[in-house]
Computed example of a mutant assay.
Amino acid sequence: MGFRLLYLVIGSLMLLGHSEPDAASKQDVKNTFTNPVWEGADPWILQQGDEYVYCFSANNGISVSRSKLLTQRGENRKIWSAPKTGWNKSCVWAPEIHFIEGHWYVYYAAGESGPPFIHQRTGVLRSKTADVFSEYEDMGMLNTGDDPSDISKNVWAIDMTVFEHRGKLYALWSGWLKQMDTDATPQHLFIQEMENPYTLKGKRVLLSSPEESWETGGPLNLNEGPQVLMRNDRVFIVYSCRESWLKEYRQGMLELKSADADPLNPESWKKQGPVFEGNQAVHGVGHVSFVKSPDRSEDWIIYHSKKGTEPGWNRDVRMQPFTWNTDGTPNFGEAVKAGEPLKRPSGEMEIEKAKKNE
């Protein structure tokens, strides 16, 4: 009986040992996640092939990371440090990275000093190769003023993004009507055609001003953080309004009235809002970006929110799926509170399982 019992015990342990890795593997790959996903603000994520590229400012410079998973960043690498002297030596804000004609371009705001933040202008970097981690060259400051021939008359500009429509490249940004000596100045959205990814063409066009009741009412009226969302020949610009340091920070939206309308004509756009805002549990949602899930079946909005209701810029990054209304407009739904389980982006679990089985 002793030997038989020992044999049964050993056999049972062997069976357990054989089954445990599969069980552990299933437990390791969670099917949900919770917000916030990481610390930071002004999140910009771009989907390139089967990878997500995340670009952000840190330590007076710009870093990027890439990952096959939307909810998990990869290794962070610094691609640029602000120079010790010059117009862009300080206050590096809200960089965005775009892949255009075989190169990565990073659009960022910076200034020679601050506060007060009256010197902010927009610059652009270009990668030397198609590798996002390659070296970058500084292509200089973009002329976001009213005189294309005289950059000395340049005007305050932040939050630049770019998009292509009908074969033309356009720049969108938040700026002032004229240069001021106080940063307590209203911000507007401007659009301009681009000659190439590092040169603006023609003159800037005032596209949107904070005029509606839902984008005004606080100490400083702002339109900023424009992001382009396209679907079925529809072009939307989702932008942040109200004050970035207050819990009322929210999202408005412009829509191009028709696919053939001229984006440079303000009359070609219609405005509505708010289309995404905070609630009792989530405060000050702002500066969004948009991507698809890994299997391309879902749409996701990435945004930052305040950690509390008190004024300030203590923020973290969050994400959630969104849907589309029957009229073809996006429906961003209700901002999901921190800690509430969300189903992971479609296709993400399969990628993680495959990686664990390599």
Rank of each mutant, 00 (worst) to 15 (best):
E267D: 15
L256A: 07
D260G: 12
V285P: 15
S258L: 10
A281V: 13
L254N: 01
V288P: 13
Q251I: 05
R250Y: 12
V282H: 08
Q272Y: 14
F276N: 01
K271Q: 15
S268D: 00
N279S: 08
G252I: 06
Q251C: 15
Y249K: 01
E248G: 11
M253P: 04
V282Y: 03
N279T: 09
E255N: 06
L246E: 13
G273C: 08
K247Y: 15
G252H: 04
L256D: 00
G284D: 02
K257W: 00
D260M: 09
P263S: 03
H287D: 12
F276G: 06
W269K: 00
E277Y: 07
K257N: 08
G252E: 01
G278N: 01
H287N: 01
H287E: 14
V275E: 00
V285S: 02
A261T: 03
A259L: 11
K257D: 00
V275I: 10
A281K: 12
W269T: 00
K247T: 12
F276Y: 10
P266V: 05
K271N: 07
G273H: 08
K247F: 05
W269Y: 01
L264C: 09
E248L: 08
M253I: 03
R250H: 13
D260N: 09
H287G: 12
D262M: 03
H287K: 05
L256E: 04
G284Y: 12
H287R: 02
K270C: 12
L264D: 07
A259H: 13
N279Q: 02
R250F: 04
G284F: 00
Q272M: 13
E277R: 11
F276K: 02
K247P: 01
E277A: 11
L256S: 13
G284S: 10
Q251K: 07
F276H: 08
N265L: 11
E255S: 13
H287W: 09
K270V: 15
Q280D: 14
G286N: 00
G286S: 11
H287Q: 07
E277C: 09
Q280F: 12
A261Y: 04
V288R: 04
W269A: 05
K247A: 06
H283F: 15
K271G: 06
L254Q: 09
P263E: 07
V288Y: 01
E277Q: 12
P266E: 13
E248H: 13
H283A: 10
M253N: 01
P266Y: 12
A259R: 14
K270Y: 11
G252T: 01
P263T: 08
R250G: 01
E267F: 09
G273P: 06
W269P: 01
K257C: 09
K247G: 07
N265A: 14
D260K: 14
A261P: 09
L264M: 05
A259C: 08
D260V: 13
P263Y: 04
D260Y: 06
Q280R: 15
L256Y: 04
L264W: 04
P266D: 07
L256F: 10
E248Y: 10
N279M: 10
E248D: 14
L256H: 00
K257R: 05
